[in-house]
Design a protein around this nucleic acid. Structure first.
Lengths: 120, 120
DNA sequence: CGGTATCCACAGCGATACTG
DNA sequence: CAGTATCGCTGTGGATACCG
């Protein structure tokens, strides 16, 4: 493959990083992947993602659904109950994300060390 | 490990994603990793990263150096020549990034398909 | 050549309040 | 319960100009 493809404005890696770099996306994917194959309700997701606002969780999940990474199922009760789970595509994304998480856990301390020893 | 660790405000994964999610970081790491063990000059990096501004390349490289992911070497000529290369730590980060790149290349088309078939 | 300084536009995100 | 609407702050990043 050519380098031009990867670095063009439509570079798939860049676009993917825009997604998973958004504040809550990777956390949502991880929570949903851990629950898989069980569904997770909106309120339960919120509980498992400390600090997320209702709005941002809503936006994050909409993005995942819109990208085909997650599915949304509404129970037509009153009040409604909404369940989410990853699609196979979304589940497959957890692999690369896990690699990033593992690296972070193993090496972020070294980065912190480098930062601390640098002039601020 | 506990989930609390990963999802705390200082979650290492979150902080790493903040870095590699920034617009030019992952591209710079890739270019430097491809050149490794050769050094790459500032102007050459700029050429290999289409669209990057001088300022953002400078900021990106400073961040990498500050985090101990890259090294900077200045040739004290006039005008100066500045060379960059990854540290072993930075090189090790290319592994997880490569996993993300591979996933992106294999699956972004599916995401585009999902987006296209969704109501806009 | 390789920065640094300044200015600015815009998108991400949080807080809050309201709705079906 | 699970959103949507509105508002405003903040940080990222682009354009431009200048410096050692």
């Amino acid at each position: 493959m050519t380098r031009g493809d990867l670095f063009s404005p439509e570079c798939p890696t860049r676009r993917l990083l825009d997604r998973i770099g958004s504040k809550w996306t990777s956390m949502a994917v991880k929570v949903l992947a851990e629950a898989d194959p069980e569904e997770v309700r909106f309120a339960e997701l919120r509980r498992r993602m400390p600090g997320v606002s209702q709005k941002m969780l809503s936006v994050t999940l909409q993005n995942l659904v819109h990208d085909g990474l997650a599915e949304r199922r509404v129970e037509p009760t009153v009040p409604v109950r909404v369940h989410y789970r990853l699609t196979p595509l979304g589940l497959s994304l957890d692999g690369p994300l896990a690699a990033v998480r593992t690296w972070a856990e193993e090496h972020m301390a070294e980065i912190d060390l480098a930062r601390a020893s640098a002039k601020r």
